[in-house]
Write a protein that binds this DNA or RNA. Structure first.
Length: 457
RNA sequence: GAGAAUGUAGCUCAGUCGGUUAGAGCGCCAGAUUGUGGUUCUGGAGGUCGCGGGUUCGAGACCCGUCUUUCUCCCCA
């Protein structure tokens, strides 16, 4: 006999977890639907040629790769064995598990470009896999909820993403969150005005840690990354950014006055703010954060990230605009913007904050209990009647002691039990027992139906 | 990839300085109660002390390896 086990970073979801997850998934799905997004599913497996090279150097390492079927070592020569694991992998594996939903979506768009009505809005809720080390809030299999629009560069889409984030999280009961927004063009502009043109990548990586490690350490890291003292001096405005959004915009405009790209980024962001206001979003939790960079290299415009406040966990959502994602698949110039919500982290946040409603845990509403073999048949038509009326109902399948059957009802938090024994068979009236109050009464099937329907959940 | 902790009954955890037959609570099963649960009482079952090796007269405890879970860095949802 062997002990059963689970691959690290993966989990089972029992009935009570699933009812919460379904609530979460459904809330997000309905929000996406309300904004006009249509569903899409793609295979768990993709060809590695589709996945490789889309997530940076480290991303390739984090892909789960699938060994080819059959005699996968056939055709390998000595040179292949000597070439090292990375090159050998490509010889023996041609498929991998999807790493996110954006790249498969880009592949889908390119393959179906003639059939799609542009702008194309799709939502996609499926698991993704990453081969990194599990930690708090980090799993190797987790669910993403993506919504993307491709085929337009209108900033209205950015504004709607902000709205959808607010709507989904508030429907879930998460009130204290921050939607951090930046723009890749602003990062480019900053690199330009400090005299480190094209270095926004390393710049962003260092500056991103500002709130974690502090100003001195950031400057130290910038030096190590080869930034000149002059550049670091000109970075000064970065370290004293106003909390107030209009003031922040004002400071950015004067700081980036000499960078055309930078100013364009500022103007784009300002328009997003304006649009969100025109939509009438109340109590917006948006924050301009010029240190926000995100790892994925394909963002070209807006960058989003959502933090749940008061919980020690990574971001629960991320996204942004990409102007050339489909370019890698031979379809350049298609602009898109999207957002991804991490269900597993949102679940952890809600659990930690105690935001899950108590209701919804009970599955069955009525349990039919028979006290002797002959009584069982009297309960079956009742079950059918209950189910026809959309009331979840079940019979205890075995003839067992009443105690055992009632224990079963308690364990499943079933609120009503119908008892059928010889007495009920004679009179035709069935005993309805309320498991919460303990009261019971003899009723006809018709009355039972009315009674269990009438009582509110 | 680097560093640190962790693992004992189905669950949560005790287990002293290395010493006889490894414990508790909860849960489970049975009975008190042959047609009534959630309260109470009584009894019972349940263990390869993660796994493998080592030290020792003797290891749940000490040492090495390995796996799991968790945390920090990195990166991400």
């Amino acid at each position: 006999m062997q002990k059963p086990s689970l691959p690290r970073g993966t989990r089972d979801f029992g009935p009570e977890q699933m009812s919460r997850r379904l609530f979460l998934l459904e809330t997000i799905r309905q929000t996406f639907r309300r904004f006009g997004f249509q569903p899409l599913e793609t295979p768990a497996l993709e060809n590695l040629s589709v996945l490789m090279g889309k997530y940076g150097e480290e991303g390739d390492q984090l892909l789960f790769k699938i060994l080819n079927s059959g005699e996968y070592t056939n055709g390998l020569n000595e040179a292949d064995w000597q070439a090292g694991p990375r090159k050998l992998t490509l010889k023996i594996s041609e498929k991998g598990l999807r790493y996110d939903l954006t790249v498969p979506f880009a592949r889908f768009v390119v393959m179906n470009r003639h059939a799609l009505t542009m702008p194309f809005k799709r939502y996609q809720i499926q698991p993704v896999w990453r081969a990194d080390r599990p930690q708090k809030g980090r799993y190797r299999e987790f669910m993403q909820c993506d919504a993307d629009v491709v085929g337009t560069d209108s900033l209205l889409c950015e504004a709607e993403i902000v709205l959808m984030l607010h709507e989904s999280l508030r429907h879930l009961g998460i009130q204290d969150f921050t939607v951090k927004i930046n723009n890749r063009k602003i990062l480019t502009g900053i690199a330009e005005v400090v005299g480190a043109e094209g270095q926004e990548g390393p710049l962003a990586v260092a500056i991103d840690k500002l709130d974690k490690i502090g100003r001195e350490k950031v400057i130290e890291e910038l030096r190590q990354r080869g930034f000149s003292e002059g550049s670091i001096d000109r970075l000064e405005p970065m370290f004293r950014f106003p909390e107030d959004t209009p003031a922040a915009f004002q400071q950015l405009r004067s700081w980036l006055a000499t960078s055309e790209t930078g100013l364009k980024g500022v103007a784009e962001l300002a328009e997003v703010w304006q649009l969100v206001e025109q939509y009438g979003l109340t109590d917006a939790r948006m924050q301009l954060d010029v240190t926000l960079a995100r790892g994925l290299s394909y963002y070209t415009g807006a960058i989003f990230e959502v933090k749940a406040n008061g919980v020690q966990i990574g971001s629960i959502s991320g996204g942004g605009r990409y102007d050339n994602l489909t370019g890698a698949f031979g379809m350049p110039g298609l602009s898109g913007v999207g957002i991804s919500l991490g269900v597993d982290r949102i679940y952890d946040v809600m659990e930690e904050l105690g935001l899950f409603p108590e209701t919804g845990l009970q599955s069955t509403r009525v349990l039919v209990v028979h006290l002797e073999e002959a009584a069982r048949k009297a309960g079956l038509p009742l079950l059918t009647r209950l189910r026809e009326n959309n009331i979840p109902a079940e019979a205890y399948p075995d003839t067992a002691k009443v105690k055992k059957q009632l224990d079963y009802a308690n364990a499943k938090r079933i609120p009503f039990v119908v008892l059928i024994g010889s007495e009920e068979l004679e009179t035709g009236l069935l005993t309805l027992k309320n498991m919460v109050s303990g009261t019971q009464e003899k009723l006809s099937a018709e009355e039972i139906l009315r009674k269990v329907t009438a009582v509110a959940d």
